[in-house]
Nucleic acid binder design. Structure first.
Lengths: 217, 217
DNA sequence: ACCATTCTTATTGTATACAAAATCAACCCG
DNA sequence: CGGGTTGATTTTGTATACAATAAGAATGGT
């Protein structure tokens, strides 16, 4: 049996990322407790975690709401993510061993299978992609980086409603990953860093293009 | 009256940073509740926050301990901090206005007074220095950066026991700050970035030199 | 109609009691 | 002795009741 606080964390997170949550919408601990089927105590724990991932925002008067970021803030988020993931890739290039390299290849094979289907299996792609990046983070062996990254990765998804992935974008991801693996195999720090930077920044632009435009109010 | 969770946060933080806490030492919620004079509930809130700042570590079995970082991890921490503070400085250079510039100058004046005394007032120096950097972070207008930075700034202090500041180091800080202000005034992004990078990295090396060597066990 | 003020209600904060889980020690059996 | 197992104890997890505070509604004066 999973701890109640973990249940709450996952349920609330899913509610925000895939559920009916609307950016900016107000949340109360009571409602969240209802959603996750536990009491307020573990909900509070879960909320603290989500607050750190900045999926949930606490106003000055301590009220909670679903995060809502401006285009400029999403931009900044991708910039930070690019910096930090590039740094992680650089560290990983120095530290990676053949076993981890194999795991990375296997993970990218899964990703290729997911995008090879017709229609492409987007959910499987996203999962494989996430795990690929998590593997790199693990190779970077930086507890701090591991702590910080979660606050940067899932953010844009909140606004993703209308986001579509083209076959070209999906294929490019696999190609980028292959090149990253090559850089790791060569233990070429600068190469790994720059491939990762391009990889994230490309993702940013393809995200911005398909994102819903901001409504001014 | 301050909320109990805030009291707990400050007391526990002080206990770790300036108190009798030893790196690696085990903590129980009960003991922390005793230290801060409140019940376990607000302590748990406080601990979550400290966990994010990575001053407190939670083991696999959910037990708490005072953070203890290897030299390599402190190194990585400074590298990340240099990257992110440099980024903050770059953003600040683009966004700063004359009012904020004035505040920055005033803050650095305070710092100069603190280090001008004999003996120098280290506590006042540290506080002025922290506030100076916080002002820059504010000018950077990046909620995410503001969220991430706290996890990187106070860390080294945990091991600082024997840390001494030389007059030369103190003076150099004031000089760096003056140059940063000049870069801001000129709105020169690249200049601001590189001055900040040097500033942090110098702090790192002067810290490492005076830090207590690691005991192997 | 508008602003301020009080009263009401909704929401978060805290303490406490109890449940679940993990650690440690004593013990038994091989 | 050593390894594993039970039982006692410590520690964390959860629910619930109540307190404190903030938001919203109603009221009254101008």
């Amino acid at each position: 049996m999973m701890p109640a606080s973990e249940t709450a964390y996952q349920k609330i997170r899913a509610f925000i990322l895939q559920g009916d949550a609307v950016p900016g919408m107000q949340l109360t601990e009571e409602k969240l407790a209802e959603i996750s089927g536990v009491s307020r105590t573990p909900v509070r724990d879960a909320v603290r975690r989500l607050e750190n991932e900045m999926l949930v925002i606490r106003s000055a008067s301590k009220r909670l709401s679903v995060a809502d970021w401006s285009a400029g803030e999403v931009d900044e988020m991708f910039t930070l993510r690019a910096m930090l993931e590039a740094h992680a890739a650089a560290r990983a290039a120095q530290r990676i061993d053949s076993k981890a390299l194999g795991a990375l290849r296997a993970q990218n094979d899964k990703l290729k299978i997911a995008i090879g289907k017709s229609p492409p299996d987007i959910a499987a792609f996203l999962q494989a992609n996430r795990q690929f990046h998590e593997l790199i983070l693990k190779c970077a062996q930086s507890p701090r980086l591991s702590k910080i990254m979660p606050a940067l990765v899932e953010q844009p998804v909140v606004r993703r409603t209308a986001h579509q992935y083209s076959q070209t974008q999906l294929n490019q991801s696999a190609v980028d990953h292959d090149e990253l693996i090559a850089a790791f195999a060569a233990k070429d720090v600068a190469w790994a860093r720059s491939v990762m930077t391009s990889h994230i920044r490309r993702a940013f632009h393809s995200f911005s293009e398909s994102a819903v435009p901001e409504t001014e109010n």
